[in-house]
Design a protein around this nucleic acid. Structure first.
Lengths: 288, 288
DNA sequence: TGAAGAGGCTCAGATTTCCTCACCCTAGAT
DNA sequence: ATCTAGGGTGAGGAAATCTGAGCCTCTTCA
């Protein structure tokens, strides 16, 4: 006659993780995004946790949530614990498959920057598999299973400056000799980098109220293709159109180039051991 | 067009916990017990983990499992991480309900030792709720949600010595004047403490090959009741029959008493802050 | 030598947990 | 006033998780 409740159910790990993410990121939506679930799921987890503890962890406000004193007191401990767990998982992965390097990056960078460099990388380090995952925002490297993260930003090891300038198909170049000509040409806009046009115009056409008009793309690589097809002028990131420029598919008729405050940067969660495949990949990417 | 796999499923926390428990305890069955699930569930978790990592974590042997080099390398990190998590949960519980003290103990101790002391405890600290959970084996206090653990053992703060001696109903006492008389009387046996008879006989009847005969009980409290009913002789733990002896429901006809190497001991996971309810309960139990 | 037991594996089926979807609500911004 | 951002709800379904019974292997012990 064993004396044991059917399941001596401790606090559910998933709910704790949801709480930690929500508390650390300051919102349920942000947590949902990090965890890859819908906000409703986070709401439910936190609610379940609070119900079980019979105590509030967040104060619900109309413009978001805020930690209660209780929540704030315990958050650091949970963050540290989940960080340790994430690190342990990282090490487990690294030890069990030391020959695979996982890289997280933007879709545009994956296609236009990383992809052309892959053959060289593969040749340089045979036996090492390079896996690339595209995502819209940099992952939390302490949690998500990536070795390297390549994104525009201000932190991390510099890989390439971000220099932007207008490009178009060669047959369109004749119609684009001065910045003012842009008003008469369709401007291809990438939805994620919509501000590029303003950033460039602010420097290249100071004093002018320039508003680009043209089709919007959610995939930068698609915009590049359309530009090469002659659909209009694209605000190009230098490092992403180098191939098209070299092959003559695109040309840059205007001399004005603008350096963005962010640059293409690479970073990794843990300090990479020299000689480790991930470290070798990082080094190779930094010095192309 | 968000670029995200349906669920960027990281390693499942539950499976990691199963691995950690199995590795730390040296077996799937032991892990299953600690986690409160069947061994099959642990098997499945570990298998899933290994499949996903494409690496073995355990070497399966006929008499159990053994960690692989990989498993052994990562175990300490996981243990530390889950310990930290368990501690964080402990603190969360303590902060959110500081007035509840959870005690884990044996069923027999709960009924026969703790229960009589509860009214006094409650009177001594009004407003503090004392919750008692009975279980067969001491819980892992770093993981399970208990503040105090009361079990026979060699570690922890001494609460009471374990002294054993035969007892019976008063009407049976006349037939029990010498240890040898035990051969002619039914000996009530508690399945969990079956060795008590041997331990006592080894000291009280040296040289004799004594084997108790009689009904076996899985619940010590039941055996005590049966002894009081005159069903036979029970090998009593002194601190558990004090009440029955005082009320005359049981008597101890033989003078031989044996002190067990284990004693009733109390311990807690974290260092208790003076003034904290759990600490006050612990102090009260130690000095009755 | 052979029975019993410990420890683990497997598979089907059941249960619980977890998540999504669609919708509502609120307050501040446009 | 409408829009947007952030959160809450409840139904329904998908997926993770657990159980249970039976099998296997090796060891122990009688």
């Amino acid at each position: 006659m064993p004396v044991a409740p059917p399941r001596p159910t401790d606090l559910p790990l998933t709910a704790l993780r949801a709480f930690e993410a929500a508390a650390r990121l300051g919102g349920f939506s942000a947590a949902a995004q990090e965890l890859g679930v819908t906000p409703g799921a986070v709401t439910a987890h936190v609610k379940a946790l609070e119900a079980r503890l019979a105590a509030r962890l967040f104060i619900r406000g109309p413009k978001g949530v805020e930690l209660t004193a209780l929540g704030a007191r315990v958050l650091p401990e949970f963050t540290a614990a989940f960080d340790a767990l994430g690190l342990a998982v990282h090490h487990l992965r690294a030890e069990s498959a030391p020959k695979i390097v996982h890289i997280a990056t933007l879709p545009a960078l994956a296609q236009l920057w990383l992809s052309p460099r892959l053959p060289g990388l593969r040749a340089q380090m045979p036996g090492v598999e390079i896996s690339i995952t595209a995502m819209e925002a940099p992952p939390n490297l302490k949690r998500a299973p990536y070795d390297l993260s390549l994104f525009p930003g201000r932190e991390g090891r510099l890989v390439a400056e971000e220099v932007i300038f207008p490009v178009c198909a060669p047959q369109l170049a004749a119609r684009l000799t001065r910045p003012e000509d842009l008003a008469d040409l369709p401007c291809l806009i990438d939805s994620a980098w919509a501000e590029d046009w303003q950033d460039w115009a602010a420097v290249a056409m100071p004093g002018t109220a320039f508003r680009p008009r043209g089709p919007v793309f959610s995939l930068y690589a698609l915009a590049v293709e359309e530009a090469a097809n002659g659909a209009g002028v694209l605000m190009a990131h230098g490092s992403l159109v180098a191939g098209h420029l070299a092959r003559g598919q695109l040309v840059a008729p205007l001399p004005q180039r603008v350096r963005l405050p962010t640059a293409l940067r690479l970073w990794s969660a843990r300090s990479l051991k020299p000689g480790h495949p991930a470290e070798r990949v990082a080094r190779a990417l930094r010095a192309p």
